[in-house]
């Protein structure tokens, strides 16, 4: 492979068009190579930086792979018990109505043990944002089946594939919360390609801006991959995600600034 020589004329500070946001700490991300969590963290922090609201934002991290989000996000943040982030965030937002409050949760956290907290925070129309990273599996604990695991999809607790007869169908939390008048903006995004990331970032921005309107909860699902859980390399997992997850979890806005 030809040895590439850098061009000092280009490598000038004034020519920087993209660099890592300062709102991510220096700590190396604990996520597996190619995992969408890192990208999701990054665009959320980029939006907070671009909106200049670092001093006005309080985050709530879950239990799951992103339990350590508080080590990576340079904002005031609380780590909630498994599934309870929407309740924790509800109190923070009620006590500080002018602050920007968000939860960052995985599918096990939000759609299994935290189902009630998710539905009721949405039903109360809390003026906050929920970021829901859906990779169809429990990553942190080693790849168990989640409520979002697809029919026939293997995991350490559905080793022969999820059997709908005995283990039920995957739970579409995003469509479910969209039926609640308390949700103002409900969308499903992805972060596996540059264009998907750009769209997702616009959704993140909209979700934060919505908090100024005081007209309900913004719910942003990000369908993501899980390389170690799905036992694939990152590029394969992104392809598998497009072929298998997207048909069941279609990407796109479900409800845009409509509180009916």
């Amino acid at each position: 492979m030809a040895e590439f020589k850098t061009n000092p004329e280009i490598l000038q500070p004034e020519n920087v068009v993209y660099k890592r946001t300062e709102l991510l700490t220096d700590k190396a991300l604990s996520y597996c190579p190619g995992c969408g969590h890192g990208t999701a963290h990054r665009i959320i922090m980029e939006v907070i930086e671009e909106m200049g609201i670092q001093a006005e934002t309080i985050g709530v991290a879950p239990v799951g792979c992103s339990v350590l989000a508080y080590e990576f996000m340079d904002i005031d943040i609380q780590q909630a018990a498994h599934g309870r982030a929407p309740a924790v965030a509800t109190a923070i937002k009620r006590l500080f109505p002018d602050k920007f409050v968000f939860t960052y949760q995985g599918d096990g956290d939000l759609a299994a043990i935290g189902t009630a907290e998710t539905i009721h925070a949405c039903n109360r129309g809390e003026n906050m944002t929920i970021f829901f990273i859906n990779n169809g599996i429990y990553g942190m604990t080693g790849g168990q089946m989640a409520p979002t695991t697809l029919p026939g999809m293997k995991s350490s607790t559905s080793p022969y594939g999820r059997d709908v007869k005995t283990m039920g169908n995957p739970l579409k939390m995003t469509e479910l919360v969209a039926t609640l008048p308390g949700t103002l903006y409900v969308t499903r995004q992805a972060v596996h390609t540059a264009s998907a990331v750009r769209k997702a970032k616009r959704a993140v921005r909209k979700a934060f801006e919505n908090q100024k309107l005081n007209k309900g909860l913004s719910f942003v699902e990000i369908v993501s991959n899980c390389n170690s859980g799905w036992k694939m390399n990152p590029l394969q997992s992104n392809e598998w995600m497009v072929e298998n997850m997207f048909p069941f979890y279609p990407i796109g806005d479900i409800k845009v600034n409509d509180d009916k």
């Binding site: 309870r84 309740a87 924790v88 509800t90 923070i92 500080f96």
Partner: peptide, 25 residues
């Protein structure tokens, strides 16, 4: 703020959130 939660579990976690903000909850 006085808020009725969906369960005692949600209520105690709301207390956790408020307490983490230095409020009397």
């Amino acid at each position: 703020v006085t808020l009725q939660a969906e369960s005692e579990i949600a209520a105690i976690n709301m207390v956790y959130g408020g307490a983490g903000c230095g409020k009397r909850v």
